[in-house]
């Protein structure tokens, strides 16, 4: 009885709003029954329901056509003209990981060599050696160059380990 009173008092828009959910099957049981009770007495809602149902069942397609008949011949010419370049496959993750680890070991090696750290592994020693050889074979920096002038400003501790200036 209470439901009936509420049903009678509800604004017609309240029923209308429920029509999409009714058609989509997402309306709860109670609301569905209420709407079905309302439909026989409301022509506007019946018309709206029918209109939406018809539209949904007959949604027009944007793509009734098919690809052009000469699609493949055109594409073949395009493929031959452009000779699509294949990009190299991305490196496997283990390769990236190994490269990272090697860089880390080399960095650690340089750091420990500078601070008198523990002995390095043979691989890291090789890496460090390669760097030392590279640096030893570099041409001396001319003192009148900008870099040379900058270096002249630095304290020369390594050249004077005794502490004398």
């Amino acid at each position: 009885m209470k439901d009936f009173q509420r049903h009678k008092q509800a604004h017609p828009d309240t029923y209308r709003e429920k029509i999409p959910a009714y058609l989509a099957g997402t309306l709860d049981e109670r609301s569905r029954r209420t709407l079905e009770g309302h439909l026989p007495e409301c022509e506007a809602c019946r018309t709206d329901l029918q209109r939406l149902r018809t539209l949904w069942e007959n949604l027009p397609d944007r793509a009734p056509g098919s690809a052009p008949l000469d699609f493949w011949p055109q594409l073949k010419v395009l493929l031959e003209e452009n000779k699509i370049v294949e990009f190299p496959a991305p490196q496997p993750r283990w390769r990236v990981a190994i490269s990272f680890a090697a860089g880390l070991v080399a960095g650690l090696g340089i750091w420990t060599a500078g601070t008198g750290g523990p002995a390095l592994s043979s691989a890291a020693t090789d890496e460090l050696l390669a760097h030392e050889i590279l640096f030893e074979n570099l041409d001396p920096i001319p003192p009148d160059s900008m870099a040379g002038q900058y270096l002249s400003l630095l304290p020369l501790e390594e050249e004077n380990p005794g502490g004398g200036s």
Binding site: R16, I19, P20, A21, L23, A24, T26, D48, R51, L52, T54, L55, W56
Partner: peptide, 14 residues
Amino acid sequence: KLALLKSFQESGLG
């Protein structure tokens, strides 16, 4: 489906 039906109803399509 629910979103489309709501939009169709609001726009008066059909």
